[in-house]
Design a protein around this nucleic acid. Structure first.
Length: 1160
RNA sequence: GCUCGAGUGGUGGAAUUGGUAGACACGCCGGACUUAAAAUCCUGUGACCAUCUGGUCGUGCGGGUUCAAGUCCCGCCUCGAGUACCA
């Protein structure tokens, strides 16, 4: 029997789906094990070979754990809200719900028409779970078809994953996002108590406010939260009370400086911006003030940091989370702004000083100088180096700092305003790109040094960021390079406060070597002591305190998009109200257009049925939103929907709903818990389920989510933990980042050439028209070797054949030109440097020798129909004759380069093609064999033949004879109920027949050699899986099968356990062999073979004998020999004497069981 | 700039605690089978020298520790990832 992988794989995939082999139970005697993959966004492009890498690894681990007797939860679902479906909807009008469904289930053409769930080539519809991949039309036929969406589900199914699909969830399913909305409400109803260091119910705050005001409440709240007494609280209106409470809630509305992406029409979170442009699409991002829902993740900054200690996550990922949270210890210091300006003769109070602070400066927002004096204006800074406070020689504020306008003097007003305007114009990106240029402006104002009471000039400069700390710094030029450069540039003093350090060239920032000088009470102190002392003195003065600062910002939670979770929020008098739990989910409304409204509202502003009826508790038409005079309230313009019109409020209890939707990370922040009880409509999950499954034991996914999903989901988990909903505050014990599988792009090298006009009577216009036509249609591509020749010979003139070809080309071109512009004299030339442009070619047009199928390329890219190809041997191929034979040395070779696998780079390898040609088991094993899981590595299809022939050899081990019949000898004892514990012991009649067939064959004991091979394989494979070293266990299997084949092993005692060993990697072939071995139950839960040391015990060792560390020969010696006996035996060996050549060794090192080294 | 990671044959990669460097595969060379090709099987394959036995060199570079270094230590170079005026 041949190894018919195609039918075997289909058979078992249907068997697993039909019998629910991998369905996990929520209560079990067995120990639980939860293996989770990051769920995919179902894009229309489908899977490429890079996507399944992590899924294969997690599947191997999940299957291994089942063999080890665990109750394994291994679920899969879809992160199905997201931008691409929405962008597609904007372009085509297709509802994202439909495109998403189709991306998962399959089949949609390029025009956006739904073909059907599954379509055959003849147009007939098939509703089978598995569609023959041969029906998928691909580029292989020479024509470029790419219009059939294969469907994520089918692509996943064909790889044989052991997912429990009965638990599938989709974030865009209202049954699922009901609970995303529910968590949002829980966050809204909570505040963070810094004393108990946890989230607590917001209603607990009200009695406190009623009794004592907010003075004694130690909470993480908005910076601008005002202080109020119990009396003031009592006097607040209901709206004012709501406003105050909003400042404490864990999700709150705020006018925030947000990253607005005009091209996408939405705000983006910090982690969605890379290098100043949007992560998706690379569009520019600008700062803009908008009212947005925010998540108070900063309340959890310290706990998110501490939590990293107890989870087994990759170090780089932890580092990047630590970096993102950005904890720094230091002090906050308050500098009082002086109401006078120092004069040459010393400090001078007004009236002179008064003159410098005009009352009517437009920068002062109408505040008089008197007001400022009363306000006791002070600037607060954060510093990590309070020890250097005596080195302060100026202060710098961010240009956006709100106090800039209040302190700037008349003389400096113009300069400061110009500067602020200039920096505001610079985009974030420009500012980042240009760090070298030092810019700034003096405000004219001075602050007072807390200790010396000396005046300190206050500057503004864009090297100080508004978003970090307080947006102001105390500048210590001797201890900070940026302050140093700024001071040097503007000629500000650079006092030295370090003992024995030369600061004439650069600042000195080495904390460890610091000894403070010229600093009053800090003199002679090292860094740490000086910091402590400085903080203590500041506290005494009441002008500072120790402070921990975090870089982490609260996360923006609003998106101006359609395809996301709607908020369960409506507005009464501009204040947000939560919809009661029992009315969830609030489903996404239908809209006609997916773009923002004409008034600039988010897409939900287009919905006509998007109002909340507080009497009927349901979403109703906006028509119902009427005021007392009967007018309907329109949707407002701006971020918050209007619930008033001309002073009149809604009178009938129908209010506008929130128009924003939630960001992509909302749904992915709770899915791992929901899998535990995914169909529960009464609770987010039952306590039984969460207490049984607890947390994820192994989480596999990409490192690109380090500061997005993986941080936000930890935050939500900690919140849920505070609420007592989950038993642990870190949801994933171990996380592995799988590396990227990169693609090998193919490039055609297009020569850059030019014509020079030597003599012409034509106008520039006429010439240009002809030239541009030629240049756009007549392209020259050169084969890779030609490019090398061009480069190595410092120009084309050295390469004779090419020269001739180009001459031919030039003559041809000249002919065309002369036809249209007779008598013109032109010269053809290549650009001398950088003389080619690389053009991507689809890799399916390239054969294994890197030769391009030129005709297929031209069919794919009609614009190159007239292009000319200079082949590897220098010949010209014009395309009007037959293309050169492949593989004969005269082909057209493309240049190859490793890049990220992506549709736009035409370097995608589709797993469907691989599965069709080699089978899923081959693909699974090959992806593992490529290299370490966590490492990024290039895909090379050629290598798959190695693992494929391994599987064929494995198959052959179980088969022999003329017809390759299944033949395994033994077992000496037939499987009994005991030996198949955990499986059903009953055997089918078919299996019995096989039993009998086996009994008729000879029964022989497995050889010691085979047992040794088996057991060393068991040992290695078990260790490898535990260490996630999947690539080495594939090698081990190869060695094992090679050895057993050489041993002609056909023993049941060897081959039965071998099937189990292989099963996590190649489950289909393992199931098939398992069945042939007489089992009627799936191999999935068969106990993993037990390693027994006794089969590996050796009596002798092949000792390497080395001389001065270099191995010269080996010799076999019994293991029971001691050092002396070994030495004697080695010294007696004739080769030893030969090596020594009469010398006496100085020393002989003997490590029993390992090595002998003779020195001398 | 800072942080982290990595440099091993033509290629992907092995070498888990310092102990025979290059496992296992791909590719390539040669051979068998075949009219031929494919498939399959066998042999060889780090470089250099040598007819062979064998020898010299060899894990980015330079040094060191050690009987012994891909592995440990010091200094450098290159590449990759993340981060970027974080006070």
């Amino acid at each position: 029997m041949k190894y018919d992988f195609s039918n075997i794989e289909k058979k078992w995939q249907q068997f697993w789906a039909g019998t629910g082999t991998f369905k996990a139970e929520n209560n079990s005697e067995k120990q639980k094990f939860y293996v989770l993959d990051m769920f995919p966004y179902p894009s229309g492009a489908g899977l490429h070979v890079g996507h399944p890498l992590g899924y294969i690894a997690s599947d191997i681990y999940a299957r291994y754990k089942r063999h080890m007797g665990f109750n394994v939860l291994h679920p899969m679902g879809y992160d199905s809200f997201g931008l691409p479906a929405e962008q597609y909807a904007i372009q085509t009008g297709q509802h994202p719900k439909n495109t998403t469904e189709i991306n998962i289930e399959g089949c949609l053409d390029r025009e956006g028409n739904i073909l059907s769930k599954y379509v055959n080539e003849d147009g007939s519809i098939e509703n089978e779970a598995l569609v023959d991949t041969s029906r998928i039309v691909t580029i292989k036929d020479g024509n470029y078809h790419d219009n059939i969406i294969k469907g994520y589900r089918r692509q996943l199914d064909q790889l044989g994953f052991s997912f429990d699909w009965s638990r599938e969830i989709r974030t865009s399913d209202p049954k699922y996002y009901k609970w995303t909305q529910w968590i949002f409400i829980q966050l809204f109803n909570s505040w963070y108590n810094s004393d108990s260091d946890k989230a607590e119910p917001i209603e607990d705050l009200v009695p406190i406010f009623e009794k004592d005001g907010n003075a004694n409440v130690n909470a993480v709240c908005d910076d601008d939260t005002p202080n109020f007494s119990a009396e003031e609280w009592g006097a607040f209106s209901s709206k004012e009370k709501q406003e105050k409470l909003l400042k404490y809630r864990l999700t709150y509305l705020a006018d925030a400086d947000v990253n607005w992406c005009p091209a996408l029409g939405t705000v983006l979170a910090n982690d969605e911006i890379v290098n100043g442009v949007s992560e998706r699409g690379g569009h520019p991002v600008v700062r803009k003030k908008m009212t947005q829902w925010m998540m108070r993740i900063t309340a959890y900054a310290q706990r998110l940091l501490d939590g990293l200690e107890k989870i087994d996550w990759p170090q780089p990922l932890k580092d990047s989370q630590r970096n993102w949270i950005g904890r720094s210890e230091g002090a906050s210091v308050s500098f009082r702004v002086l109401p006078w300006v120092p004069s040459a003769g010393g400090k001078t109070r007004s009236p002179q000083g008064m003159g410098s602070f005009p009352d009517e400066s437009p920068l002062n927002y109408g505040e008089s100088f008197e007001t400022r004096l009363k306000a006791d204006l002070a600037i607060e800074v954060f510093t990590t180096r309070p020890d250097t406070i005596f080195g302060v020689s100026f202060m710098t504020l961010a240009p956006e700092h709100e106090q800039v306008s209040k302190i700037t003097t008349t003389e400096h007003k113009a300069e400061v305003e110009t500067y602020i305007e200039a920096t505001a114009k610079r985009s974030e990106r420009d500012r980042m790109a240009d760090v070298k240029t030092i810019t700034g402006a003096f405000t004219g104002a001075y602050a007072e040094h807390p200790f010396t009471k000396e005046p300190i000039p206050i500057w503004i400069g864009d090297y100080v960021l508004a978003g970090y700390g307080t947006g102001a710094v105390m500048s210590v030029p001797c201890g900070d390079q940026r302050d140093y450069d700024f001071a040097k540039h503007f000629g500000i003093d650079i006092p030295n406060i370090f003992e024995g350090i030369d600061i004439s060239e650069e600042a000195f920032a080495d904390k460890e070597k610091t000894v403070i000088a010229n600093s009053d009470f800090l003199n002679g102190l090292p860094y740490k002591k000086a910091v402590k002392k400085a903080i203590a003195e500041l506290e005494t003065l009441g002008q500072g305190e120790g402070r921990i600062n975090y870089r982490l910002r609260d996360a923006v939670f609003s998106r101006q998009r359609y395809w996301g979770e709607p908020f369960p929020v409506y507005y009464v008098d501009g204040m947000p109200q939560m919809i009661a739990d029992e009315h969830l989910p609030i489903k996404l409304p239908e809209v006609e257009k997916y773009l923002p409204t004409e008034t600039g509202e988010p897409p939900l502003g287009n919905a006509t049925e998007w109002s909340w009826d507080t009497n009927r508790n349901e979403v109703v038409s906006n028509e119902n939103r009427v005021v007392s005079n009967g007018n309907v309230i329109p949707n407002g313009s701006g971020e918050r929907s209007r619930s008033t019109v001309e002073g009149q409020t809604v009178s009938n209890g129908v209010y506008p709903l929130e128009l924003n939707t939630m960001p992509g990370w909302a749904g992915s922040s709770q899915y791992f818990n929901r899998y535990m009880d995914p169909h529960n409509d009464d609770e987010i999950f039952s306590q039984e389920a969460i207490n049984y499954w607890q947390d994820v034991d192994l989480y596999i996914g990409g490192s690109e989510h380090a500061t997005g999903h993986l941080l936000y989901s930890r935050f939500w988990q900690k919140f849920m933990f505070d609420k007592g909903l989950v038993p642990v505050d870190e949801y994933a014990k171990k996380l592995i980042n799988q590396g990227m599988i990169t693609g090998t792009s193919a490039f055609l090298l297009r020569l850059k050439y030019e014509f020079y006009i030597l003599d012409s009577t034509y106008s520039n216009k006429e010439v240009e028209a002809v030239f541009s036509e030629i240049v756009s249609t007549k392209q020259i591509f050169v084969s890779f070797g030609i490019k090398n020749a061009l480069e190595e010979s410092e120009g084309p003139k050295e390469f004779q054949k090419l020269r001739e070809s180009l001459d031919g080309f030039a003559t041809g071109m000249k002919g065309i030109i002369l036809e249209k512009l007779p008598n013109m004299d032109v010269r053809f030339e290549l650009e001398s440097e950088d003389f080619y442009n690389p053009i991507h070619a689809d890799i399916s047009l390239i054969n294994s020798s890197n030769e391009l199928d030129i005709q297929a390329f031209k069919n794919w890219r009609p614009e190159y129909q007239d292009a000319i190809f200079i082949l590897e041997d220098g010949e010209i191929y014009h395309g009007n004759s037959l293309p050169p034979a492949e593989g004969r040395g005269g082909g057209f070779i493309v240049s190859r380069e490793v890049e990220k696998m992506s549709k736009s780079k035409y370097n995608v390898v589709n797993p469907d093609d691989i599965v069709k040609e080699y089978g899923a088991d081959s693909l699974r094993m090959y992806e593992m064999f490529l290299g370490p899981l966590e490492q990024s590595k290039p895909w090379n299809t050629a290598g798959i033949t190695g693992v494929h022939s391994f599987l064929k050899k494995l198959w052959k081990l179980y088969h022999s004879g003329l017809n390759n019949e299944f033949k395994v000898t033994g077992p000496t004892t037939l499987p009994t109920e005991e030996s198949e514990k955990g499986n059903s012991p009953s055997m089918t009649s078919e299996a019995h027949k096989k039993e009998q067939g086996r009994e008729q064959t000879e029964i022989n004991e497995p050889s010691a050699e085979s047992l040794k091979t088996l057991h060393k394989t068991i040992k290695k494979v078990e260790e490898d899986i535990e260490n996630f070293s999947f690539n080495t266990s594939v090698s081990t299997f190869m060695i094992c099968v090679n050895e057993l084949t050489a041993q002609k092993c056909s023993s049941w005692e060897i081959l039965e356990p071998l099937a189990i060993l292989v099963s996590p990697y190649a489950p289909h072939i393992a199931e098939e062999l398992w069945e042939k071995l007489g089992h009627s139950e799936s191999i999935a839960t068969a106990p993993f073979p037990k390693f027994e040391e006794k089969y590996l015990v050796e009596s002798s060792k092949e000792y390497p004998i080395s001389f001065n560390g270099k191995t010269r020969f080996t010799m076999e010696l019994p293991l029971e020999l001691d050092k002396r006996q070994i030495e004697e035996a080695v010294m007696a060996h004739e080769k030893t004497q030969q090596q020594l050549d009469g010398r006496t060794p100085k020393k002989v090192i003997v490590v029993p069981g390992k090595i002998v080294n003779i020195v001398g």
